[in-house]
């Protein structure tokens, strides 16, 4: 598998850029990856403009003109998706929910991939006792059930969307770490690495300038999957009631709907849209990763 991705390149300084350019090319040329990227752009635009697009504040309690609570209203021109039992506008909540989803997803994915890549690089290149220690820590991370861990953690921390980011950073780097390590093992004895070592490059320089560009595509592949994971996890945690209470998220909306008997009342306009939004953004991540897989593992194409 590594033959196609690991090429000996004349200028290491440009390797990162080239690596990035290659990935940018995938986003445009692969049909799936392109669709996925478009969806992300759309969600980012909605998140940025939520304040302008949303007709109401997401937590504002609304009243009808005659002073009654505007609770459980069906969809109408004023409220495209109706209102919650507490008289909040569902459509506005849906738009604002994009913000917490993207924030949690992108930040958590960044940390997961950064930590995993670092662990994999150091363990794979240093070998010996460093490798042994790091891999035993990885084994331990694989022995911790993730969702239960987030739940236990939230027993001790203030409710916040950052709990999910913290828990993911502590545990989910494990997959990236192992994969990057095995990739580093295949690269580290190549001649250009030997050459760098002989010519007196520092360990850090070899790691980050010479080896890192070769594993970057794999990191990004894991990153595009981790974004979806983070969004799903945040939704699950909010649904279970351990999420942030000051910020509207899709998981919170679903919990609100579930606890307000929206299911038995058949209030589809309430509990279907947030779930669909999650599905669309997670699938978009899968599509992007599929594009990467094609350049990483070309034999799957046929």
């Amino acid at each position: 598998m590594p033959e196609q991705t690991v090429r000996i390149r004349p200028s290491r300084r440009q390797a990162f850029l080239r690596s990035l350019r290659e990935l940018g090319h995938v986003l445009i040329s692969d049909r799936y990856a392109f669709t996925g990227a478009l969806v992300y752009v759309a969600f980012i635009v909605v998140a940025a403009l939520a304040g302008v697009l949303a007709p109401y504040e997401p937590t504002e309690i609304l009243f009808t003109p005659d002073g009654m609570l505007a609770g459980d209203l069906p969809p109408s021109a004023d409220h495209p998706l109706g209102t919650t039992s507490l008289g909040r506008d569902i459509y506005s909540q849906l738009l604002y929910g994009t913000r917490s989803a993207l924030l949690v997803g992108l930040v958590a994915a960044f940390f997961v991939v950064a930590i995993g890549t670092l662990v994999g690089l150091v363990a794979g290149y240093m070998g010996g006792i460093v490798d042994t220690i790091l891999m035993r820590i990885t084994d331990i991370a694989f022995g911790i059930p993730f969702l239960p861990f987030v739940i236990v953690l939230s027993a001790f921390l203030e409710p916040s969307i950052w709990n999910v980011v913290l828990a993911m950073s502590l545990i989910l780097w494990r997959d990236t770490g192992r994969v990057i390590r095995s990739q580093v093992l295949t690269v580290k004895h190549r001649s250009f690495i030997e050459a760098a070592r002989v010519s007196g490059s520092s360990t850090a320089r070899i790691l980050f300038v010479h080896i890192a560009p070769n594993v970057l595509p794999i990191s990004l592949l894991y990153g595009s999957i981790a974004v979806g994971w983070a969004i799903l996890t945040e939704a699950s945690i909010s649904f279970l009631g351990f999420g942030a209470t000051d910020q509207i998220s899709w998981g919170y909306m679903l919990q609100d709907a579930y606890l307000s008997q929206a299911l038995s009342r058949g209030a589809w306009h309430w509990f279907v849209p947030p779930g669909l939004a999650i599905v669309v953004i997670v699938v978009a991540g899968f599509f992007i990763s599929r594009g990467y897989e094609d350049i990483l593992f070309p034999k799957l194409k046929d």
Partner: peptide, 26 residues
Amino acid sequence: IPLVLLSRAAPEFWLGMILLAIFSFQ
């Protein structure tokens, strides 16, 4: 293949809510 990806992208609890609403409540 896209259908399979969809099934993996849907939050389990939401899938459960939809099935509950259809098969249990409706």
